[in-house]
Design a binder for these strands. Structure first.
Lengths: 144, 144
DNA sequence: GGTTGTTAGTTACATTTTCAACTATTACCA
DNA sequence: TGGTAATAGTTGAAAATGTAACTAACAACC
């Protein structure tokens, strides 16, 4: 098993990004899955609602770059657990406004604390300059 | 939909990494899916075999950080399409050595050309220094 | 030599995700 | 006004993934 081809996977950005994303997600998954039995789609929706306070499912799709069926199902499950509420828009009843309940907000605050801690650990592998560059670059790459 | 919380998702690394990985993967996915109906697991296995020439499924699991069932199924599908061959190890028949067929290699070469081109496009968004840092950092984060 | 443990890989089943079709509501425009 | 198009969101079936249990082959130890 010696390398033959001159193409180096470790330079191919989609591959590298996936690898890093996968690994950094796994440890955080243990937290939200272990504590609340949540899925990745669910914590993402929860976090967006906590941060933006009031959004429609469409808003979340765009911000989080998630497909609408994923969002729809995550919202359903969060609603079942009483982490969020829906209110149809009065003027355009195709829209539903989503907000967290106080219970949902409590879960968020707990997870946020863990997220911060989790990030600290990851960042210990990096210099402050690397962190700055990384964040800037990832944000740039996230604009499609 | 205005931001309320002081926690910025755009600083949370697992989130950022996922977002960037997702977007950068999508355009490449169009290529391998569109041209060969392949899945992400499959192009990854194909690329590993092309680069390392001869590996067992276990080797691929380790290099690519993929679960063995994913690898097992990707190998099955690649075999069905005659992209790879299996040969049981003579000395230890629990191992199977995997190699690409010439057909598999041709597919790889085609995809590799697209991968390079795809990477060029991504990198146009970044400076050479950012690219260097990004690769280094992603490799560091990929070590679990 | 036979029992127990380990390893490589597969399979079965449950959970998630994807894709396409669907409903309900509003917008557009002749 | 009426008819078509567009939009927000949901649902069902198919595909993919994750988890755990499984087989087959070898190792180690008594």
């Amino acid at each position: 098993m010696t390398q033959k081809d001159d193409f180096d996977l470790r330079e191919f950005l989609p591959y590298l990004l996936n690898q890093a994303a996968e690994i950094s997600s796994q440890s955080f998954q243990r937290i939200y899955k272990g504590r609340y039995g949540m899925l990745r789609t669910e914590w993402r929706v929860l976090f967006h609602l906590a941060i933006f306070e009031r959004m429609t499912a469409k808003d979340i799709c765009e911000k989080a770059i998630m497909h609408k069926t994923k969002v729809s199902r995550a919202v359903q499950r969060l609603e079942q657990r009483r982490y969020l509420q829906r209110k149809p828009d009065e003027k355009d009843r195709r829209h539903e406004w989503l907000t967290l309940t106080s219970q949902g907000r409590a879960v968020y605050e707990d997870l946020r604390a863990h997220a911060r801690q989790h990030d600290q650990v990851l960042m210990q592998k990096l210099s402050t300059e690397e962190i700055t560059v990384l964040r800037r670059v990832l944000n740039a790459l996230s604009q499609p």
